[in-house]
Design a protein around this nucleic acid. Structure first.
Lengths: 212, 212
DNA sequence: TGATTTCTGTACTACTGTGTACAATAATAG
DNA sequence: CTATTATTGTACACAGTAGTACAGAAATCA
C-alpha cells in the first residue's frame, strides 16, 4: 500500500477504505448474523453512511456475500500458508492453531468461524449463501486432501486410511472446533482436542518432535 | 386428534395442541433462524394468532428457547436409543443414519441440525442460547464417550486412543455431517463419509475411497 | 476560474416486525 | 340461566429497518 494513488479519480474522494470497511462489516455480521445485523449497525461499524454503503457494495445482501467471499479468500490463504513447508503433523497443528486464534480473536465473545457462525443459518433461505458455504467447505477439504496425499506418498502417515477420508476427518475436526468455540467451550480444551486429533489422524508416533 | 381429557379446565378451550405448535414453530426457526423468522411466520406455521402464542410460550425468544430445549431432548432420546443394544460400529452407524434422516427430512431444502443451523448464529449475541448450545453439544459428546468407554472395556475397539478422544472425534463427524448437509452436500456423500469414519474410529479394515 | 464529477450527509418514505388492548367467544360452575 | 374463566381474533401502537432523493461538499479538468 505504499504506491497507491497513481491516478486519483475525478470526483470527491472516498472517506473510507473499501477493504477496511468490508473487514469491519464482516466483523458485524460475524457477531449477529445476516438477519441480526442492521444497516445502522453496519453504518456504525464501517463509519460509512448508508448511501455510501449502497454505492460501494450494493444492498445488504450483496455486502454480506462480499464479506463471505473475502473470508473464504483469507482463510484459504492462511490455510495454504500453514500447510506448506512442514511435516504433516506440524502443518495440521498450525492450521488448527491459526483457526483457534481467529475464533477467539475477540476477548468479549468467542466468534468461531464466520461461515459456520453465520452462513450456515443463512444457507437455509438463500441459495447463493448455501453455494458459497458449500464450495468454501469443499475447497478446504480438497486442500487437506492434497496435503494428506503428499504425506502418504512420502511415508509420513502411518494410518492405512485413504487421504480423502483423512481429509474429511481433518475437516470435521476443524468444523467441530469452529462450532464449539462459538458454543462457549474453552480455548484450552479445544486446543487439547486438536492436538490429540492430529496424533490420531497422523499416527500416534511423533512426527519430528518429542511427543508430550 | 382427541385424547381422553381428565378434566377440562374452566374457560374457552385451546384451539391448538401446545406440543404440536412447538414442533411447527421449531420447523420455522429451523429454516430461517431466529432473526429470520417473524411472528407472522410463526403464527402461520402454528395456526395460532399472536396473543395465543404469547399466552402459551411468552415472547419470541422464549419460544425459541423452548424449541431448543425440545430439540435437545428429542435428539438425546434418539441418540440414546441408537447407541444401545448393538456393537459399537453398528451403534454409531445408526446414530449417523438417524441424524442424516433428520437433516434431510424436508425434500425442498436440506436443514442440517437445528442447533448448528440456527443456535450457532444466535449464540453470538445471546448468552442463554450459547449456554444451551454448549450444554447440548457437550452432553452429546459425553454420551458418545460412555459408549466408547464400554466398548473399550469389552474389547470392541482396536484403536489405542482414549475413549474421550474417540468421543470427540465421533462428535466432530456428527458436527461435520450437520454442517455439510446444510451447505448442500449430497446425502449419499455424507452417508459414505459416515461409514468410513466409523471404520476409522472403531478400528476396522482400511477403506479405499475416492473423493467425490 | 468555472464546469464537471463523485462522494457525503441529512432527511425522508414505505414497510416490516414486535408486542398489547380489548371485545367477542366458548367453555365450566352453581 | 347467570356468573365466571380462559382463550381467540381484530385492531392497533410504536419502534426498527431497508432503501432512496436531494442538496451540499470536495476533488479534478479545461
Amino acid at each position: 500500500m505504499v504506491h497507491k494513488e497513481l491516478k486519483r479519480p475525478r470526483g470527491r474522494p472516498r472517506a473510507y477504505d473499501p477493504d477496511d470497511a468490508l473487514a469491519r462489516a464482516t466483523a458485524s455480521f460475524w457477531r449477529a448474523g445476516f438477519s441480526g445485523t442492521s444497516l445502522d449497525d453496519l453504518s456504525a461499524a464501517t463509519g460509512m453512511n448508508r448511501p455510501s454503503i449502497y454505492g460501494a457494495f450494493g444492498d445488504k445482501r450483496d455486502l454480506y456475500l462480499a464479506a463471505l467471499d473475502r473470508y473464504v479468500e483469507v482463510s484459504r490463504a492462511q490455510m495454504t500458508a500453514a500447510l506448506s513447508d512442514a511435516p504433516i503433523a506440524l502443518a495440521l497443528r498450525r492450521v488448527y492453531d491459526g483457526a483457534l486464534a481467529l475464533y477467539f480473536a475477540k476477548p468479549e465473545a468467542p466468534l468461531g468461524c464466520f461461515l459456520i457462525g453465520t452462513a450456515a443459518t443463512e444457507a437455509g433461505v438463500d441459495a447463493r449463501v448455501r453455494a458459497k458455504l458449500g464450495s468454501g467447505l469443499r475447497e478446504l477439504t480438497r486442500t487437506f486432501e492434497a496435503r494428506f496425499r503428499a504425506a502418504k506418498k512420502s511415508g509420513e502417515i502411518a494410518s492405512p486410511a485413504a487421504p480423502a477420508l483423512l481429509a474429511e476427518m481433518a475437516g470435521a475436526v476443524l468444523h467441530s472446533l469452529a462450532l464449539r468455540a462459538r458454543a462457549g467451550d474453552s480455548r484450552s480444551s479445544l486446543h487439547a482436542f486438536s492436538r490429540d486429533a492430529v496424533k490420531l489422524l497422523c499416527g500416534a508416533a511423533p512426527a519430528r518432535r518429542r511427543s508430550s
